[in-house]
Each structure stands twice: as structure tokens, then as C-alpha cells.
Design a protein around this nucleic acid. Sequence first.
DNA 1: TGAATTCATACTATTTTAGTAGTATAATAA
DNA 2: TTATTATACTACTAAAATAGTATGAATTCA
Lengths: 132, 132
Amino acid sequence: MKISTKGRYALRVMVDLALNGTDEFISLKDISIRQEISNKYLEQIIAMLNKAGYVESTRGNNGGYRLKKKPEEYIIGDILRATEGELTPIFCLTENGNCPRKENCKTYSFWSGLDKIINEYVDSKTLADLIK
Amino acid sequence: MKISTKGRYALRVMVDLALNGTDEFISLKDISIRQEISNKYLEQIIAMLNKAGYVESTRGNNGGYRLKKKPEEYIIGDILRATEGELTPIFCLTENGNCPRKENCKTYSFWSGLDKIINEYVDSKTLADLIK
DNA sequence: TGAATTCATACTATTTTAGTAGTATAATAA
DNA sequence: TTATTATACTACTAAAATAGTATGAATTCA
């Protein structure tokens, strides 16, 4: 059970923006150098954050990205879900809508419980918690 | 973040054994029919459980598998780790031993916390909890 | 002996991951 | 207006993981 680089890098980008860009726009180039992540790969990742409305951008000279809201208003779970998709390890629920074995499956409530604690955890932290 | 079929099927096999085989050995064929999982794929999965010492087997006619211990003595986390490997979503720790960015990485303790609650959860349940 | 079963490998098709590459488009400063 | 700096979009790709199949040998019971 692993979270991919998308979610991990996305979190680092958001942290980077929170720490380095209070007002002005920050170029991806700067972020990619600081974070040691390929500029091209970061483009894809930040595009998802942009579409989700978590960052805003301007083009052109001195362009770049910056946060749209205050760090304490970003829930980590939202950032991860925007880049990773569903965080649930429960296939029974997500795979094809609903597992037909669900009713008699003795493992169902176990997985359901795991899903619950994972989501509760990631939704209990904000970006502000990470940077302080 | 998903748990693969290995861990999911392994859990179902263990539950099946706990429910259907108290004393006698149960053939994989029976389990695969009940669980609707390919016999051949189950062979691989139960082989891991066998190597881990969680089940015992006999070959030949009327051979099969049965649990070695009582259901309440099996911790779900152990079963999952035996088939999935590490359950941690934290690459920072596992990937190459240790992430060099660890010290300054603002996301590290977040992932570490996620790892902790996941492992605490799976280690708090036994096979007996599932079958009752 | 013969049927049923585990055990041990090897093989394979598909999907996901983790990027790279190239081009187009837009905005700004000088 | 022009050079520069940046984002936006679309393909492509190598490697790894996933989810199985296939084959055959070894073992046991009747």
C-alpha cells in the first residue's frame, strides 16, 4: 500500500508555496530546483492543483504560482485526493460501485474501518500543521 | 492507495479456513469455489501463508490446509504483511533505507503519523474479530 | 496403481507509475 | 514590438507491479 509520487510531490509543492510565496508568484523552476523534482513532471502535478482551484497562476515574466487561500484552510486529504484520486483501500466499495459479496463478506467491515481511520487522519491535518 | 488482491484474498482464505475447517484439512479447490477465486492464484497466496507458518498442510488425497492456531491468535496486520509486504505508505523511510531530505522535510511527520495509525488499526484486530 | 492434492517455477498480459519531449500559447519588460 | 520567461497541452515511453495462467513434479490415500 503506497501513495504515489503524485500525492507526495503535490504536498511538497504546497508546502513550498506556503513557505516561500506569501504574496508574489513563484515559478515552477524555482520549486523544482528547491524540491529536486523535474520541472516537467511538476507541471503535470501542479496542473491538477490548479484545476482543483488550490493555486492560482500568472504567465509571463515573473509569473508562477501562489496559494489561493491561507495554509490553515487547506485540508491535506483534499490535496491528496485531488492528485491521487480516492484514498480508500476499499475496492469492495469503489471497484465496480459495489461488491456483490459485501453482505456475507466477513472482511468488509474491517476494510471499511481502515478506510475510515485513514480518511479521518488525512482530513484532520491542514497545510498549516505541516509548515509550523 | 490500494491494497492488492494478495492481501485481500489472503484474509478471505484465512476467514474461510476459520469458519469451515476446525479440525480436518480443507482443499484449496473447495476454498476457491466458495470464494470465487482462481485455484491457481490461491496456490501462490496460500504458499506465503504457509511459509509464514500461519497454516499447515498435507498433500495427497483428502489433503489441504488448516489453521495452526486459534483465530483469536492471528493478528490481521501480520497476515497482511506476510502477503503484501510492508503496509507503510512511507517511502521516505522504506524506499532506500532513508530519505536524505528527511530532516528538513515538512511532510515527513505527516506520513509517519499516517503509517502509525494504519499499523495500529490492523494490529488491533484478530481473525476472531472478523468471523464473529 | 490411480486419483487427488500440494509444491515449485516459469511465463504472460495488462495496468500503473514515473517520468520525458515537444510544441503552442500567453504575458511582461525593455 | 520583440525577446524573454513562463504556463498549457498532448504524446510518448521504459520499468515495475499486478493479476493471473501453465506446466509439471512430489506426495498421500484408498
